[in-house]
Amino acid sequence: MKVYPYKRITGEIGLEVTSVRQEREGFYQHDLETWAFSTQERVVALHQVERDDWESVRLGVTAILPGKEIAEGPWTDISVIAVLTEKATNSRTTARLERVAGKDGSWTGHLRFWRSAYRSRADLSVVAVATVDGVRGRMIGRAEEPWIVDLTARTPVRQREMIINQVDFTSGPEWLRPFRDAPWLVETSGDLPTVHLNAGFEGVSELLDSSGGPLERAVRDMLAAQIATDVWTAVFHSAVSDLEVDEHGNPQWPGGWRDAVLRGMLADVLPDHSEADALREIDARRREGSGWNELQPRINYAAGRRAKVAKNLGTAIRTLDTSQRESRA
């Protein structure tokens, strides 16, 4: 845990988005219905909501600070700032929230951001700042759970692990044509990993969409698990090879989906290391090559675990057993 040389808020800081207003200057202002943002998932979904030509969005933001602790603490000159950031666009938008009269610890305000400055998924948080021990501008706390503002999602869902793109490899984009006899292909360069599913490979799409008898379902789940294993292996390698290092040569957590992949899989790949050590270790092994080959079975294992290969295989074998017994009977 990080140690700070001054007193910070120990209580929780809550954050809610209370309204979402789309705007196009001189044309319209439009408050979105509540289905566009979810308090449960903590996501605002902005893709193709109502109008597609919006220029900016004004988010109504409320922060709840532990009122009693604030009143009794050593902080003066408290301000509460809403912060929207996105790594891909290096964009950062801030807005000062105002104290709500008569409501202890409650702060509210609006944060306006422009569509042209953001690309896909931005993080919304609030930071409490105060003067402590005579030092102005100290950060004394931030919201436990940030929100996600998703410009590409139609519905407010937090977990998006991959994009499934059904395309016929023989008639689709030129670059997919050399792969026409492959049932699927994993691409990891974008904002999210993408599985290109070859619609020209007869039966694959139907099989994955099937909900037939137990045997069919077992085969479907096995196939899904195999694709998932491929995806996890590919995203892991991609995340490791894209690691950035700071000025001391320490690898940095990459953010976005790569971050989630590494944190999840490193626990299986290098089980005896702390998260930070595992990241350093994996980066060093890949760079220097020593011990990299030895890690491959472990990476495979970690990918298989995430894809639930063992569970699906087990189910498939049991289903086969049962159906054989039934056909014999």
Partner: peptide, 9 residues
């Protein structure tokens, strides 16, 4: 910047 918020200063 890990303890000070430049946006406020």
């Amino acid at each position: 910047a890990s303890t000070l918020m430049y946006d406020v200063l």
